[in-house]
């Protein structure tokens, strides 16, 4: 139950808005962080907290693409396939990933480590091709970096190749 575990946080969130329902996205984020995906129980609980009906929560969850209604792998790899990344090789990147992981977009590896998705523009068109893995961005991805990232993740659960704050143009071109 979110209500018990995150009592203060929920109170804090609610206090930011004059209308309870506004807290819906923040609470869904809380639920997704807690369980990796938004469970039915969480949707019902959130409806109760916000005094709306479960269908009103559900319709919102399904509108936003970042909420998962089913469990995803431990690492959710989301490759930007919009035009700008497409121009600099996102299809190739996707190809590598498919080959390395043995899955197509929408699928999860049998060990439940990786889920592969394609997404639309993530606002790093100047540093493409790029992908987001869980919360982190990985930019200017090359074949060799894909291998390192996957290995890092498997081994350490994280990778030093993830992006820090926005790469400034002066640094552009010089590989990290």
């Amino acid at each position: 139950m979110l209500r018990e575990k995150y009592k203060d946080e929920i109170e804090q969130i609610l206090s930011r808005y004059p209308v309870r329902r506004s807290a819906l996205l923040p609470l869904l984020w809380l639920a997704q962080t807690e369980e990796e995906y938004v469970t039915e129980a969480a949707m019902k609980e959130i409806a109760g907290i916000l005094r709306i009906t479960p269908p009103q929560v559900y319709e919102v969850v399904t509108f936003y693409t970042m909420f998962n209604l089913r469990p995803v792998g431990k690492f959710h790899i989301q490759v930007c396939k919009s035009l700008m990344c497409g121009l600099v090789g996102s299809d190739v990147l996707l190809g590598w990933l498919q080959a390395r992981l043995g899955i197509s977009p929408g699928q999860t590896t049998p060990d439940r480590l990786f889920t592969l998705s394609t997404v639309e523009c993530l606002a790093s068109c100047g540093t493409g091709p790029m992908m987001q893995i869980n919360d982190e961005y990985y930019e200017r991805v090359t074949e060799e970096r894909v291998d390192r990232i996957l290995a890092d993740l498997k081994r350490d659960g994280t990778s030093p190749l993830k992006s820090g704050p926005f790469i400034l143009p002066q640094l552009a071109g010089s590989e990290k």
Partner: peptide
């Protein structure tokens, strides 16, 4: 206050943004 969206380009349109901020689609 910071309010995080959740993946919907249309929420950049100002009135969609307001709807989203109100906890709706």
């Amino acid at each position: 206050w910071l309010h995080r969206g959740a993946g919907a380009y249309i929420c950049g349109e100002e009135t969609a943004l307001l709807e989203s901020l109100e906890g709706k689609r």
